[in-house]
Amino acid sequence: MARSMKEMVEDAKAQTETASPREAHEAGAGDRVILDVREPGELQQDGSVAGSLHIPRGVLESKADPDSGAAEDALTSRREGAKIYVLCASGARAALAAHTLCQMGYDAAIIEGGLQAWKDASLPVEDA
Results as ranks from 00 to 15, higher is better:
residue 36 D to N: 11
residue 125 V to P: 01
residue 63 K to H: 14
residue 90 S to W: 00
residue 78 R to L: 00
residue 109 A to N: 11
residue 35 L to T: 07
residue 20 S to D: 05
residue 39 E to A: 10
residue 67 D to A: 15
residue 28 G to W: 11
residue 68 S to A: 13
residue 108 A to W: 01
residue 8 M to S: 13
residue 32 R to I: 03
residue 54 H to T: 12
residue 1 M to E: 11
residue 55 I to G: 09
residue 2 A to W: 12
residue 62 S to M: 14
residue 126 E to H: 10
residue 35 L to V: 07
residue 16 T to P: 07
residue 79 R to K: 15
residue 3 R to G: 04
residue 68 S to L: 09
residue 52 S to P: 05
residue 8 M to H: 03
residue 6 K to V: 15
residue 99 H to D: 12
residue 23 E to T: 14
residue 78 R to F: 00
residue 23 E to V: 10
residue 111 I to V: 15
residue 56 P to Q: 07
residue 86 V to M: 00
residue 113 G to Y: 06
residue 5 M to C: 05
residue 54 H to P: 05
residue 88 C to H: 06
residue 26 E to I: 00
residue 57 R to W: 08
residue 91 G to E: 03
residue 84 I to Y: 01
residue 1 M to V: 13
residue 30 G to T: 11
residue 106 Y to T: 00
residue 101 L to G: 01
residue 121 A to L: 05
residue 81 G to S: 12
residue 35 L to A: 07
residue 84 I to G: 01
residue 36 D to Y: 10
residue 86 V to E: 02
residue 21 P to S: 08
residue 96 L to S: 06
residue 28 G to V: 12
residue 61 E to P: 03
residue 107 D to Q: 13
residue 102 C to S: 07
residue 74 A to F: 04
residue 24 A to W: 09
residue 113 G to L: 01
residue 50 A to P: 11
residue 92 A to F: 01
residue 109 A to W: 10
residue 110 I to S: 01
residue 107 D to N: 10
residue 23 E to M: 09
residue 35 L to M: 04
residue 20 S to A: 06
residue 122 S to K: 15
residue 102 C to H: 01
residue 97 A to Q: 04
residue 14 A to N: 14
residue 109 A to I: 07
residue 4 S to L: 12
residue 39 E to I: 05
residue 8 M to C: 12
residue 24 A to F: 08
residue 50 A to C: 09
residue 80 E to F: 02
residue 68 S to Y: 04
residue 25 H to C: 01
residue 46 D to R: 11
residue 97 A to I: 06
residue 35 L to E: 05
residue 36 D to T: 07
residue 33 V to C: 10
residue 119 K to H: 04
residue 49 V to S: 08
residue 109 A to M: 08
residue 23 E to R: 12
residue 75 L to G: 01
residue 63 K to M: 14
residue 77 S to N: 13
residue 5 M to E: 11
residue 45 Q to I: 02
residue 64 A to F: 08
residue 40 P to D: 10
residue 8 M to W: 00
residue 73 D to N: 05
residue 97 A to M: 02
residue 103 Q to W: 00
residue 68 S to K: 07
residue 81 G to Q: 10
residue 19 A to E: 07
residue 1 M to H: 12
residue 114 G to D: 02
residue 5 M to Y: 14
residue 73 D to I: 03
residue 5 M to Q: 13
residue 16 T to E: 06
